[in-house]
Design a protein around this nucleic acid. Structure first.
Length: 408
RNA sequence: CGGGGUGUGGCCCAGUUGGUCUAAGGCGUCUGGUUUGGGACCAGAAGAUCGAGAGUUCGAAUCUCUCCACCCCGACCA
């Protein structure tokens, strides 16, 4: 992508109506635009990151036998009345159609996926079944805050699993934990993300959250450093030690809930009467699990965790582009390198603008691609191009012949 | 939802004891020229219902009332 053609530009000054780092950096660097409190557009750079995140999630969900689907954002009022949540869930956006039929803008999809599953699950032979989607969710938060960390419309992956019995759910749940760990590892958040015991609501003793350590988070958790588990403050009263090793020396930290997985049991199969016929011929309630992961929230979290005073430092797997190629008045040579890299499938953002060196360097730091490649008189005299990692301060010269093989 | 704060060209802002405000400056944009290793310089240009509505007044960005939006703290967060 040529930066001269890129939709949106970087801005020098901090947006005055944002104080969270993720929102400031993402707006300044041109990744997102805010249209209302907690409602953001993703611009080309931001959407590229979203798609990297989606690809990772998709791979890991398919690896645990999830099948991707897409459910509607609108759900008829009756679905939400069936579980009683039409009246009790205060974050539910409600809207009316022209026929005065009322709908919910789905904040989660148990009320949609359960009746959907009912249409296709009849026998134990169809279980287990796992479906997931990556979709916009709507929650009418009393107060949207912290940039992308708490929005009213946001991107989320939600997977739902259907099982014949509790043991099968338990086994699958553990596989999901492994998949989630892989995902956060690939996001570059592995070291900072803790599997955390949290409230299970009315239907299970505990749920598990994936909490990523950052001061920008609004949750308080207690971490056990020896086994990398944590306990959410909300349940610390009944769980004052590490649930895994019994360690009582827990450390209080702030974190953001990037994922949350639940054993739903029959909470939703009951109201929708989702049953299957077992080997013995008996009709039994399907046992369910749900597994959420905030995509836009993860994006914001990555920015909170991976940055310095100059800007974002994208982990390689989620970076909008691998390389930021800067031409300092050497567009002829840079054009060629750009085309070479592109033809080899290397993702390059090429700063071909007629801008000063200082502006290009500042933008490269702000946007935060993992590698910066500079073509200038100076670099050519030194024997090629200057290559620098965004995360490091040292640079080195590589010959133009070696670039493609080095960076592919 | 309670408390606090802020709304002035696309962005950041000055101006608010009412009076050359016919709204200043910086960034960005456009034109011309000079520049090019850490957000360059010169000259010129375009761009504003001063958040909205109502009111007070000879006169309102400035005062009053109502409303709206955004940010922060708190509460809330299957």
């Amino acid at each position: 992508m040529k930066q001269s053609q890129l939709f949106t530009r970087t801005i020098k000054e901090l947006p005055k109506d944002e104080t969270s780092f993720n929102a400031q950096a993402l707006i300044r660097a041109g990744f997102v635009d805010k249209s209302a409190a907690g409602v953001y557009s993703f611009l080309p750079l931001g959407w590229k990151v979203v798609n990297k995140i989606k690809d990772i999630i998709r791979e890991e969900m398919e690896a645990i036998d999830g099948q991707e689907i897409n459910m509607p954002s609108l759900a008829p009022k009756e679905n939400w009345q069936a579980t009683g949540r039409w009246d009790t869930l205060d974050v539910l956006f409600k809207t009316a159609g022209s026929d005065e039929k009322e709908y919910a803008l789905n904040p989660t999809h148990e009320e949609v996926v359960t009746p959907l599953a009912k249409k296709f699950i009849y026998s134990y032979r169809e279980l287990p079944l796992m479906v997931f989607q990556i979709q916009n969710k709507f929650r009418n938060e009393k107060r949207a805050k912290s940039g992308l960390l708490r929005g009213r419309e946001f991107l989320m992956k939600d997977l739902y699993s259907f099982h014949a019995n509790q043991e099968d759910l338990d086994t699958y749940y553990d596989r999901a934990i492994v998949a989630y760990n892989n995902i956060f590892q690939r996001f570059g958040l592995g070291d900072k993300t803790y599997l955390t015991y949290a409230s299970g609501g009315s239907f299970a003793k505990y749920s598990h959250e994936f909490q990523t350590l950052t001061e920008a988070g609004e949750d308080i958790i207690y971490i056990c450093e020896s086994c990398k588990m944590a306990v959410n403050k909300e349940i610390i009263a009944d769980q004052d030690s590490c649930p895994k090793c019994g360690n009582k020396d827990l450390k209080e930290v702030k974190a953001v809930e990037t994922g949350n997985i639940f054993k739903l049991g029959t909470k939703y199969s009951e109201p929708f009467d989702l049953k299957y016929q077992d080997k013995d011929g008996e009709k039994k309630l399907v046992i369910m699990g749900c597994y959420g992961l905030g995509i836009s929230r993860s994006l914001g979290t990555i920015v909170e965790v991976c940055h310095d005073e100059k800007g974002i430092i994208w982990p390689e797997e989620v970076a909008p582009f691998k390389i930021h190629l800067l031409s300092l008045n050497e567009n002829e040579i840079a054009d060629k390198i750009y085309l070479d890299l592109k033809s080899q499938g290397v993702e390059v953002l090429y700063d071909d603008r007629d801008a000063s060196a200082g502006e290009k360097f500042a933008d490269a730091d702000l946007i935060g691609c993992p590698y910066r490649l500079v073509v200038s008189k100076k670099s050519l005299q030194a024997g090629g191009l200057e290559l620098k990692k965004r995360s490091e301060s040292v640079s080195r010269i590589i010959s133009s012949d070696a670039i493609v093989s080095e960076l592919k």
